[in-house]
């Protein structure tokens, strides 16, 4: 599965656009991390706990999107976009969406 956020897959030809695929997840932080972040806020800087939390959550949203694409027997997903929103206090929604496509066979098949 080729995933890109450009409109086309460079070097490949898109035979068919199958349709929109999407994945989301809503994650809550846990109290320990929040307390640690509270202390960290004294001096500012990166909050690694939150970075990890959101990276992991976004990967899950992407995986859900890819599972949908696989179900549609797509070869790739193009024009992928992300949004994040704070839904309620204490939780964030991560949403990934893109267009599932079927590819034409590689032109002049290159052997490497």
């Amino acid at each position: 599965m080729i995933v890109v956020n450009t409109e086309t897959i460079p070097g490949r030809e898109i035979a068919e656009a199958i349709g929109l695929v999407q994945g989301n997840t809503i994650r809550a932080k846990h109290v320990g991390r929040d307390i640690a972040a509270g202390f960290k806020n004294l001096v500012g800087g990166e909050l690694r706990g939150y970075t990890e939390l959101l990276t992991e959550a976004r990967r899950q949203a992407l995986e859900r999107m890819l599972a949908q694409a696989k179900q549609l027997s797509a070869d790739g997903v193009v024009n992928v976009r992300f949004t994040t929103s704070a839904v309620t206090g204490g939780a964030a929604e991560l949403y990934a969406y893109g267009t599932a496509v079927r590819l034409a066979p590689a032109a002049g098949a290159r052997y490497e």
Binding site: I2, G11, G44
Partner: peptide, 28 residues
Amino acid sequence: LKRVTAPDEVEDAHMMLGSVVIATDYFK
């Protein structure tokens, strides 16, 4: 740019992500 110039000359297209959570201090 959305469109890659001379797309036939490139290979191994793959989406990359980078993210960070960062905070200011209370005083700021």
